[in-house]
Amino acid sequence: MTPADLSRTVLHAVRRAVDEDALRAPVPARVRVERTRPGGSGDYACAVALQLAGPAALPALDIARILRERVAAEPGVGRVEITGPGFLSFTLDAPAVGDRAVLDAVREQGLAYGHGDALRDEILQFHHAREVRAAVTAHAVRRLVISQGARVRVSCEEASDPDWTRLGVTVDAHGTPPVPLTGIRPVPAGVTAGELLARLGADAARWGLLRPAGHDRAALGPGLLVQGEANPLFLVRHAHARARALTRGAALLGFTAEPAPYGENPVPYDGAARPLLDLIADHPGALLAAARHRAPDRVARQLEAVAHAFFDFHDSCPSLPAGDEKPSAAHRARLALAEAAGTVLAGGLSLLGIRAPEHL
């Protein structure tokens, strides 16, 4: 069970409780489930009972008890505890099952892993100034909200800069509608799309414009072109290329990826593998949060975290056999995790409008 699955399970429990008249409160549009913090109980925690206490006119502890019995009966949920003033803490059954479900989801969904329909009821219109950072940000935000099911239209206050198309930017209309995209600090005067393209190229320019939070200054210096891990863009693309190289290497050795089997744990995803798998499992939530907050910088930071975790895993858990060693279940399972990381990195870069080369 992934975090997104658990969130839907809790939301379903709330809906059942309301339908059965055990709880009288509006059903929220979504339920947020987070990993338990150090020292906490269980694998995940949720504050939905506190969220519903006011509308339901009941103590949060009472609501938590109503929901606990409904969530605990769901497949994949091992234990549900109530902690503090009414937090629900969940311990999932058989970690290997949950891990396999995450890797299977990435394999099945490919670059669309993490896309969803949470914003399917939203029809959005964004408006931005005739300025390169605003244009690139609006384009990335458009991609993010569409990935979560929204319909969106983007307009610019004046005619577009012709060089924006070389940065991948499209604008639907011109004029001044009532909903501006705010909070984006412009680049210094005189910095245009054409100048950025000539100096950095499209991919590095987009990363430099999108990686900082909207209110922060965009770093557009030569460091974006450095071929070293001090450059976050290179780090992310290098991790993706390395993951793809592992797949090619495995093919030459005559084996393919295979996650650890359901219901068994012969190749536990622990040690350096655990942070990477956790980040992959959290990726759908990261994309949804970035879409809701209109914050493509969150995607960039998520990708950097995945890249760092990938290299930690890669350095300590070889996916390819050495020398005369034969491919084992461990190699196949590790390769499955490496491939999933590469897919997440490619999908995230695609949402930012940046290429993910298979060779660097």
Rank of each mutant, 00 (worst) to 15 (best):
T2F: 01
A4W: 04
A4P: 02
L11P: 04
R16H: 11
R16A: 10
A17Q: 11
D19V: 09
P26N: 10
A29L: 14
A29N: 14
V31C: 14
T36G: 12
S41P: 03
S41K: 08
S41N: 08
Y44H: 01
Y44D: 00
A45W: 04
L50M: 10
L52Y: 01
A53E: 02
P59I: 03
A60R: 00
D62F: 06
D62P: 09
I66A: 01
L67H: 08
R70T: 13
V71C: 07
A73P: 10
E74N: 00
G78V: 00
V80G: 04
E81M: 09
G84I: 05
F87E: 04
S89L: 10
T91N: 05
G98E: 07
V102N: 07
L103P: 05
L103D: 07
A105T: 11
A105G: 14
E108D: 15
A112F: 07
G116Y: 13
L119V: 04
L119K: 06
R120S: 15
D121N: 13
D121I: 08
L124E: 15
R130I: 07
E131Y: 02
V132G: 02
A134F: 00
T137V: 15
A138P: 08
A140T: 12
A140P: 01
V141P: 00
R143Y: 02
R143P: 03
S147W: 02
G149Q: 08
C156I: 07
E157Y: 10
G168R: 14
A173C: 07
G175S: 12
T176N: 12
P180M: 04
P180W: 02
G183D: 12
V187C: 11
A189W: 07
T192A: 11
A193N: 11
A193F: 01
R199V: 05
G208E: 05
G208W: 04
R211W: 06
R211Y: 11
P212Y: 02
A213H: 12
A213R: 15
A218D: 01
A219N: 12
A219C: 07
P222L: 11
Q227R: 08
P232W: 03
L233C: 08
L235T: 15
R237C: 06
R237D: 02
H240A: 08
R242F: 09
R242Y: 09
R244Q: 09
A245F: 02
L246W: 01
T247D: 10
R248N: 11
L252K: 10
L252T: 07
G254E: 09
T256I: 09
T256G: 14
A257E: 04
A257I: 05
P261H: 07
Y262V: 13
N265F: 02
Y269T: 00
A272I: 06
L277T: 03
I280K: 06
H283T: 05
H283D: 05
G285S: 09
A289T: 15
A291R: 06
H293Q: 13
R298V: 09
Q302D: 10
Q302N: 09
E304S: 11
A305L: 13
V306E: 03
F311S: 12
D312S: 14
L320S: 14
E325H: 11
E325D: 15
K326F: 12
A330D: 08
H331G: 03
H331W: 04
R334E: 06
R334M: 02
L335N: 03
A336E: 09
A340Y: 05
A340E: 07
G342F: 01
A346K: 15
G347R: 09
G347I: 12
L349C: 01
S350L: 04
L352W: 03
P357I: 10
P357F: 09
